[in-house]
């Protein structure tokens, strides 16, 4: 019995080891994004909270594109949704994204690629204020592929994002 407990303990320690190594920092500034649901890492109870600094520390992707909602070509910078999911050990399921006005849409995990969409936090090199769809906006590189110019993708382009929930 002890032996079994030891084995399980070792297995647990082996499983937990990398997680422990990547344990999320605790946000120092204002929390801009709260991720809940079926995630492998948390920093506040069973949710993971991110301030802007944490997001900016993560992998960064930039692209230029036009959008339906802005004038002219805009340069977006942000963390790929895929990197965010990876960081939290999410490999399947659906992401339910919600905005501050409680607008909410679902993004299947398998539709997320390495670079699209990104959770943008900069527009044309500046942080996005809440009055201009900030501070976080899920955007796709619409101009790069017709596949990003569909109603579904447009509906997923949620601005004033503040919550992600991973559901099965």
């Amino acid at each position: 019995m002890r032996k079994l407990i030891t084995v399980i303990a070792i297995g647990f320690s082996l499983w937990l080891a990398p997680v422990a190594a990547q344990t999320l920092d605790t946000p120092q500034g204002d929390v801009v994004l709260t991720i809940s649901g079926d995630i492998a890492d948390t920093n506040d109870g069973n949710v993971a909270r991110f301030d802007m600094e944490m997001l900016e520390a993560m992998e960064q992707v930039s692209f230029e594109t036009t959008t339906l909602w802005t004038e002219g070509t805009s340069a977006f910078t942000g963390v790929p949704l895929a990197a965010l999911l990876d960081r939290l050990g999410v490999t399947e399921g659906t992401i339910r994204a919600s905005a501050i006005n409680d607008y909410s849409i679902e993004i299947p995990v398998e539709s997320v690629t390495e670079t699209a969409p990104i959770v943008a936090y900069q527009l044309d090199g500046a942080a996005m204020p809440r009055r201009q769809k900030g501070p976080l906006w899920i955007v796709y590189p619409y101009d790069s592929d017709a596949a990003f110019r569909t109603e579904v993708i447009y509906s997923r382009s949620i601005w004033q994002l503040d919550r992600l929930e991973v559901v099965q």
């Binding site: 909602w69 017709a146 110019r149 569909t150 109603e151 993708i153 447009y154 382009s157």
Partner: peptide, 11 residues
């Protein structure tokens, strides 16, 4: 169809 289904509309 593209125009209708996806293109410019959003909701």
């Amino acid at each position: 169809l593209e125009r209708q289904s996806s293109a410019s509309s959003d909701n």
